[in-house]
Write a protein that binds this DNA or RNA. Structure first.
Length: 106
DNA sequence: CGAGTGACCGCAA
DNA sequence: ATTGCGGCCACTC
């Protein structure tokens, strides 16, 4: 691969993966990072979310604890509204039932 | 080109 | 159970 793909391979995979998260499902930053080849780069996934393509459904990406992401445009309030609109049950603590709606690519 | 930073995660007190 | 700190890897300025 002498192409420049390897250069942004990580970012490309993250964006592609997030873009493929089905409605009503969520993924954790650590899981996405691991699937992209760097299980320790969970922070980078967040960085991609902030600097990357804002058209992607980052609202479906939550923490390992099921807690919503801080820094999302609109805050956890807005994210909660969108998730609830997609059929995801968000409690008053801004946490989703990650144990049930955690999605994984096949 | 170099340094700082971060939409995190895991562990320790 | 909560709070604090470090590490980690990639991105931006």
């Amino acid at each position: 691969m002498s192409t420049q793909q390897a250069d942004k391979d990580f970012r490309r995979r993250v964006q592609a993966l997030v873009a493929q998260i089905p409605k009503g499902r969520v993924m954790t930053y650590g899981q996405i990072a691991a699937l992209c080849g760097s299980p320790r780069a969970a922070r980078i996934v967040g960085g991609i979310a902030h600097y990357g393509e804002e058209k992607l459904p980052w609202q479906r990406v939550v923490h390992k604890d099921g807690h919503l992401a801080v820094g999302y445009p609109g805050g956890v309030e807005g994210q909660k509204q969108v998730l609830a609109s997609e059929g995801v049950g968000v409690d008053n603590e801004y946490r989703v039932d990650i144990a049930k709606i955690l999605w994984s690519p096949r």
